[in-house]
């Protein structure tokens, strides 16, 4: 990476680092965990989320207010990243944040599929991607799944959608796969090796999580391979093929040869619930992002690290607030926090 590239990223990285310093520090979570809901609410109202809480206070109340405020804040933060970045960074962030378009399209299709009301669907949309709020409102007005898909025919998402034959899960998977493929394409197009590396690790982690779930559910190799996302870093096509054909316990043992094993070694024996394994893999992803963004401080990585960290902050806060509200035992809440 040349000097000029470093300069390109100096502005956005400094800005993102400053934003990251405002995230809730890790050692704060145990303290929040000890608070009661009103205290947590106050804490969130006085933090970075103040503006969003004030804005939505008319519409929602209590924990629902907190949840909507957090998801709005998340969307706005991501939007801001797109707005303040330029050139390559902007391009890559935009591609990365297509996640929200995918999310919105999925929600919309699911809503239409099950006949949910327009208001119900709108409530669950997060306008943080390329489809603007106005686009989404237009889409919501369309009555059928096929109609929504038709209206999306001019967007880049159409190739994933056009094969719709009444099976929603199929196009949801197609959309998600498209999202990964599109980002890899973007990485190759810009020649940004770091972005590619990050992405491929992300794909590995995603594939691992899915393998665990699908193997545990006893799915066949062919069905598994249909859902696996190609382009992983360590888990190549051949590895995945082999892993997918092994029985569950052998599959777990076969993972020992990959570097991700250390992250899940001590929880891999208990397969009654995969939540522990998923949390470990999420944590691994977060740590990995932080680590390589230190190695390459002036690159796309600190930005991706921030995107991940911000998402995890929102998730963590939500786990605590919701967990407290539904009176989940503290150990369970704690177990689900990614810290």
């Amino acid at each position: 990476m040349g000097a000029s590239n470093n300069v390109k990223y100096a502005y956005i990285v400094a800005r993102v680092r400053a934003m990251k310093s405002k995230l809730i520090p890790r050692d704060m979570y145990p303290k929040i965990l000890n608070m009661e809901i009103p205290e947590i609410t106050r804490f969130i109202e006085e933090s970075e989320y103040k503006k969003d809480v004030d804005e939505l206070a008319k519409k929602y109340k209590g924990t629902e207010l907190i949840e909507h405020a957090m998801s709005q804040n998340l969307a706005l933060t991501y939007r801001k990243l797109i707005e303040v970045s330029q050139n390559e960074a902007n391009f890559l962030i935009t591609e990365y944040l297509r996640f929200w378009d995918i999310w919105n399209i999925k929600t919309m299709l699911r809503g239409k599929f099950s006949g949910a009301s327009e208001e119900d669907i709108v409530e669950h949309l997060v306008a943080a991607g390329q489809l603007s709020y106005r686009d989404l409102m237009e889409l919501v007005k369309i009555g059928t799944v096929e109609g929504v898909i038709g209206a999306l025919s001019r967007t880049p998402y159409y190739p994933a959608l056009e094969g719709y034959k009444g099976d929603l899960a199929e196009i949801e998977n197609a959309l998600d796969k498209w999202y990964y493929a599109k980002r890899i394409e973007a990485a190759i197009q810009t020649g940004n090796k770091l972005f590619l590396k990050f992405l491929r690790t992300e794909i590995d982690l995603k594939n691992l999580k899915m393998l665990f779930r699908m193997k545990r559910a006893g799915m066949e190799r062919e069905d598994i391979m249909k859902l696996i996302i190609p382009g992983g870093m360590e888990l190549k096509e051949a590895d995945l093929n082999r892993l997918a054909s092994l029985p569950l316990n052998e599959f777990v043992r076969a993972l020992e040869e990959f570097s991700y094993w250390n992250a899940i070694a001590d929880v891999s024996s208990d397969l009654s619930s995969l939540i522990n394994i998923e949390i470990r893999l999420d944590k691994y992803g977060l740590e990995y992002a932080a680590r390589i963004s230190y190695y390459y401080p002036l690159s796309i990585l600190p930005i991706l690290d921030y995107i991940l960290s911000k998402k995890i902050e929102v998730d963590n806060l939500r786990i605590i607030v919701h967990g407290k509200e539904t009176k989940l035992p503290e150990e369970i809440i704690k177990a689900h926090l990614v810290m």
Partner: peptide
């Protein structure tokens, strides 16, 4: 139902939903 018959995509969801 089986994991792949729930009606939602597997890639975009987590095992918490499955459970």
């Amino acid at each position: 139902k089986k994991l792949n018959e729930h009606g939602y995509g597997i890639i975009g969801t987590s095992s918490r939903i499955d459970e």
